[in-house]
């Protein structure tokens, strides 16, 4: 799989505008999600990353442009860890089972539902945590729990809002490897992030957003000083390390000094 999206289209946005209470956050956005896509949406705070995610989710209607969705589309969504109320009284098992809201009237799970939840927890390596309260999990385990909840719905498109925000470096690698495995298994994945270097190392396709789509392509196509300046409004230096572009977070005068030297 390429991850850049050549398979059948799940969602097609054409010249879409979107925003809140009359103010445009996104303008004239063209964006396609293919069945084999693995894409990171990057951009500064307030650039419209979450707005784009909400339009893809269908919780925010575009104010302009055209949008179409495949009849086979089954979306699951993983929220930011920072937005979750970790004191809510649920165990890992109860949290994962929440996403099974159709087909069953009685509150308690059936035998097959229990087996399904156990299987998905097993797949994500957290089956021994099923009876723990959600507050007792580490950052990586919390992310896996929400992935388990999302996977229980058997989606073909997984949307994640800042999945690497608020976790340490090793957890970030772990989460991105896990997403890579899910993509290899045939799931389309779109996520938002601030983490440019982490995405360059793990994702095959990036989209730079700042109110509009500034650039789209492989990390080598997108992580360039020119595109980053257009996206973030600030000059950044890009180095090559182990065949991957690496963004150096340095002040403009330092970049000038390095370039003149």
């Amino acid at each position: 799989m390429t991850g850049t999206g050549v398979g059948p289209i799940l969602i097609d946005m054409l010249a879409v505008d979107a925003g809140y209470r009359g103010s445009h956050v996104l303008h004239n956005v063209d964006f396609e999600v293919h069945e084999d896509q693995f894409t990171g949406i990057v951009g500064p705070s307030g650039a419209g990353k979450t707005t784009l995610l909400r339009v893809l989710l269908g919780t925010l209607d575009p104010t302009g442009g055209a949008m179409s969705r495949s009849k086979d589309l089954r979306i699951s969504y993983v929220p930011q860890l920072e937005t979750v109320n970790w004191d809510f009284p649920v165990t890992v098992f109860e949290c994962v089972l929440m996403s099974r809201t159709s087909g069953r009237i009685a509150p308690w799970p059936t035998k097959s539902e229990r087996a399904e939840v156990r299987a998905v927890l097993e797949r994500l390596g957290i089956s021994d945590l099923a009876s723990r309260h959600i507050r007792e999990l580490s950052g990586g385990q919390q992310q896996r729990m929400f992935l388990a909840r999302a996977l229980l719905r058997k989606p073909n498109l997984l949307l994640l809002d800042e999945p690497t925000s608020g976790v340490d470096v090793s957890t970030r690698h772990d989460v991105l490897h896990l997403l890579g495995d899910l993509h290899e298994d045939g799931m389309a994945i779109v996520l938002t992030t601030h983490d440019l270097n982490g995405m360059a190392a793990h994702l095959p396709h990036l989209v730079c957003v700042n109110g509009r789509v500034v650039a789209s392509g492989t990390p080598h196509d997108v992580i360039t000083p020119h595109v980053l300046e257009q996206t973030y409004g600030a000059r950044m230096e890009v180095l090559e390390h182990l065949g991957m572009p690496v963004v150096v977070d340095a002040a403009p005068e330092m970049i000038d000094r390095r370039q003149s030297a």
Binding site: L81, E82, W86, S138, G139, G166, V167, D168, S170, D174
Partner: peptide, 15 residues
């Protein structure tokens, strides 16, 4: 009122 105020920060731990 967690629905309308600042989000609760998740604990940040290693996996």
């Amino acid at each position: 009122d967690h629905g309308a105020t600042e989000p609760v920060r998740a604990p940040v731990n290693a996996l």
